Simulated assay, not measured.
Amino acid sequence: MRKLSGVMPALVTPFDAAGQIDFPAFKAHLTALRAAGVSGWVPCGSSGEYNLMTDAERDSVLQFVRDFALPSETLIAGTNAPSTAGVIANTLRAKAMGYHAVLLAVPFYTKPTQAEIINHFNTVTSTTEMDVVLYSYPGKDGVEIGYEALDALANNPHIIGIKESSGVLQRAIGISTRYAGRIQLVSGSDDIAWDFMYWGADSWICGPANCMAKPVCEMDAAFRAGDHARAKAIMTAIWPAMNVLESGKFVQKLKYGCALQGQPVGDCRMPFGPLTEAEKAEFAAAMQVVITWK
Rank of each mutant, 00 (worst) to 15 (best):
V265A: 08
R171G: 00
T84Q: 06
L260Y: 07
A172M: 13
T276P: 05
S5E: 15
A172R: 02
P271C: 14
L153E: 05
F15W: 08
A281I: 06
W199A: 03
G19C: 08
A96R: 15
G207P: 03
V265N: 05
Y99R: 04
K232I: 06
M212C: 02
L70P: 00
W199D: 01
Q63P: 00
E57F: 10
A286F: 09
A85P: 00
P274F: 13
D267T: 14
D141F: 15
K253I: 11
A241I: 04
S136C: 07
F283W: 10
L153T: 08
K255L: 10
A101P: 00
R230I: 01
A193D: 03
F108T: 06
A278T: 12
A115Y: 06
K232H: 15
G139Q: 12
R93W: 03
M130R: 10
F68C: 04
I88T: 07
G174Y: 02
A284L: 04
V124M: 12
T236P: 00
M197A: 07
D191N: 11
V38T: 10
F121Q: 07
C268P: 06
N156G: 06
A32Y: 12
G45A: 11
P138C: 12
A28I: 04
G146R: 08
M235I: 03
S83E: 06
M287K: 01
F15Y: 14
A77W: 01
Q114S: 15
T13S: 13
G161S: 09
A69W: 02
A56I: 10
T110M: 13
R182K: 15
V61Q: 04
Y147L: 13
V168S: 04
S166Y: 05
I291R: 13
C206R: 03
I162N: 01
D267K: 14
V244R: 12
A10G: 14
N122Q: 15
N90G: 12
V12F: 13
I159N: 02
T113S: 14
S136L: 01
V186M: 00
N90Y: 03
T110F: 15
D191R: 06
V216P: 00
A180L: 05
V289H: 05
C206I: 01
G248I: 11
I234L: 09
I183G: 01
K249D: 14
H100D: 15
F64I: 09
P9W: 06
G167D: 03
I183A: 03
H228T: 13
E277N: 13
M219K: 05
A233Q: 14
W194I: 08
